[in-house]
Simulated assay, not measured.
Amino acid sequence: MTTDYSSALRAASDAAGNQHYPAGALYVVATPIGNLADITLRALQVLQLCDTIACEDTRHTQQMLRAYGIDKSSHQLLAVHQHNESEAAQGVVSLLQQQKRVAYVSDAGTPGISDPGARLVATVHAAGLRVMPLPGASSVTTLLSAAAVGATSEETSGFVFQGFLPAKAGERASAVETLAAEARAVVLLEAPHRILALAQSLAVLGERQVTVGRELTKQFESIAQMPAAEFASWLQADSHRQRGEFVLVLHPAPVAAQGGGNTKLLKLLMTELPLKTAVKLAAEITGEHRNALYEEALALKKEDSDDTLGPGGPA
Rank of each mutant, 00 (worst) to 15 (best):
S6L: 15
R10H: 11
A30I: 04
A30V: 10
A37S: 14
L47I: 13
L49W: 07
A54I: 04
D57L: 07
T61E: 03
Y68R: 01
G69L: 09
S73L: 14
S74D: 12
H75W: 06
A79T: 10
Q82T: 07
H83D: 03
E87T: 06
A88Q: 09
Q90T: 14
G91A: 10
V93F: 03
Q99T: 07
A103E: 08
Y104N: 07
D107Q: 04
G109T: 02
G117N: 12
R119M: 02
L120Y: 13
V121S: 10
A122C: 09
H125R: 11
G128Q: 01
P133K: 08
L134G: 04
P135K: 09
T141L: 12
T142D: 07
G150E: 10
G150M: 09
T152Q: 14
S157K: 13
F161C: 03
K168W: 04
A180H: 01
A181W: 11
V187S: 04
A199R: 09
E207A: 15
R208A: 14
R208P: 12
R208K: 11
G213Y: 11
E215W: 00
K218T: 02
S222D: 15
Q225W: 05
A229H: 07
L235Y: 01
A237R: 01
H240A: 07
R241M: 01
V247Y: 12
L250M: 00
P252G: 05
P254C: 09
A256M: 05
Q258D: 14
G260I: 07
N262S: 15
L273C: 10
K276G: 09
K276C: 13
A278P: 10
I285L: 14
H289P: 13
N291Q: 11
L293N: 02
E296I: 11
K302I: 04
E303K: 12
D304M: 13
L309E: 05
P311F: 02
